[in-house]
Design a protein around this nucleic acid. Structure first.
Length: 419
RNA sequence: CGGGGUGUGGCGCAGUUGGCUAGCGCGCCGCGUUUGGGACGCGGAGGUCGGAAGUUCGAGUCUUCUCACCCCGACCA
């Protein structure tokens, strides 16, 4: 991608509406644009990043046998009445069809869709277990949107629903999902600051678990056991005031962002819809369910909160919109020729590269590169031409290195693979 | 949903006690000079002041209503 052809216009000044680091940096870097309170457009850079995150999530969920589907955003009122949430949920976007006068909900979650769906496909113990997930926009009429991507009214979410014939099977899968979540958060670069956290489990199971990423912009207070790297949400700290793993009574209070949540639903949603299966003896038994959510935009925001410096974003290589940010310094013929040659070489090798081919001053290009936060910066200038080398600097490091032309691909691959 | 704040070219802002063609910086367009950390000169374009109603000889400045955004709380992936 050439910078000059992209939809990137960085901003110099702080964004007035931005109430958080992620909102400020993502807007200034042309990753997102705010349309309304808590409602954002993903621009090319932002969408690429979201797609990288999606891909990490898909890989891990597919590994635990998740099957991807795509359910409707429009959901009929009747299903929500059946579970009682038409009345109890206060952040549903409800509206009435102009023509048919039918009442509808913009989906904030999909139990009301996936359970009736499962009824059409799951009849027998032979059909179980099943794991269905989707990545889709959700809508919640939040009283107050805040924190940039951390709490929106429309947001992208991965929601996985599991269906089981027994509590043991559900328990087993719940652990698998928990491990998949750990892998996901490791891969997107926030593993070391993300803690499995015991949270309220509602009426059907004692606890649910959240994955909480330590950050001052977090809305949640959690109590962390530094030995086990496990935490307890403030909402249950009275009933669980020691580390659930080792009993350690010395927990540290930290602020955190909830990037994921896993929940044993048991028969909470299967019951109202009469979702059952026939067992070996010919008896009808309730199907037990789990649900497992990750907000992708929130995750992206959390990554920014964790990984940035005063100059801008610092993307972990796995989810960066590009691997390489190529800059020609100056635009004399030799520099341009050599930069173009390198650009094409990288493209040919399928290394995702953005070339800042603008005739901006060097200062502007360097500052923008820092802001946008691509992991590997390559520079070609008169200086580098003299030594027949390319300057390589990693966004996350302070020092740069000079790489001979023939070694550049190898060096890039080293950096990409190590991470 | 309660309390508070802010709306002025694309972005960030200034605009005295109401007063004449609404300013500034950045960005944008043209020409030229520049190029290792947000270059410079010259010349341009662009706003009717969130919206509506009102007070007044006169409103960006005052009043009322309204919309939007932001903050603080209570609730939540």
């Amino acid at each position: 991608m050439k910078f000059s052809e992209s939809l990137i216009k960085t901003r110099r000044e702080k964004v007035k509406e931005a109430d958080s680091i992620n909102a400020d940096l993502l807007i200034r870097g042309s990753y997102i644009d705010q349309l309304a309170s808590g409602v954002y457009t993903y621009l090319p850079l932002g969408l690429k990043t979201i797609e990288k995150i999606s891909s990490v999530i898909r890989d891990e969920i597919n590994k635990i046998q998740g099957q991807e589907i795509l359910m409707p955003v429009l959901q009929p009122k009747e299903n929500w009445q059946k579970t009682g949430r038409w009345e109890t949920e206060d952040n549903l976007y409800k509206f009435t069809s102009y023509y048919s006068k039918t009442d509808l909900v913009l989906g904030p979650t999909h139990e009301e869709v996936v359970v009736p769906l499962a009824k059409k496909f799951i009849f027998s113990y032979k059909d179980l277990p099943k794991y269905l997930y989707q990545i889709q926009n959700k809508f919640r009429d939040e009283k107050r949107a805040k924190g940039g991507l951390l709490r929106g009214r429309e947001f992208i979410m991965k929601d996985l629903y599991s269906f089981h014939s027994s509590k043991e099977d559900l328990d087993d899968y719940y652990e698998k999902a928990s491990n998949a979540y750990k892998n996901i958060f490791n891969k997107v670069g926030i593993g070391s600051k993300t803690y499995k956290t015991f949270a309220s489990g509602g009426s059907f199971s004692k606890y649910s678990h959240e994955f909480q990423t330590e950050s001052d912009s977090g809305e949640d207070l959690i109590y962390l056991c530094k030995k086990c790297k496990v935490a307890v949400n403030k909402e249950i700290i009275n009933e669980q005031s020691t580390c659930p793993e080792c009993g350690n009574p010395k927990l540290t209070e930290i602020k955190a962002i909830e990037v994921g949540n896993i929940f044993k639903l048991m028969s909470k949603f299967s019951a109202p819809f009469g979702l059952t299966y026939r067992d070996r003896l010919g008896e009808d038994k309730p199907i037990l369910m789990g649900c497992y959510g990750i907000g992708l935009g929130r995750l992206m925001g959390a990554i920014v909160e964790v990984s940035h410096d005063k100059d801008g974003l610092i993307w972990p290589i796995e989810i960066a919109p590009f691997k390489v940010h190529l800059i020609n310094m100056g635009d004399n013929r030799e520099v341009l020729t050599e930069t173009k040659r390198l650009y094409e070489k990288l493209m040919k090798k399928k290394i995702e590269v953005i070339w800042d081919d603008r005739s901006e001053s060097n200062g502007v290009k360097l500052t923008d590169a820092d802001l946008i936060g691509i992991p590997i910066r390559l520079i070609i200038s008169n200086k580098t031409l003299e030594s027949k080398a390319i300057e390589l600097k990693e966004r996350a490091r302070d020092n740069s290195e000079m790489i001979q032309y023939d070694n550049i691909l190898t060096r890039i691959k080293e950096i990409v693979d190590v991470k």
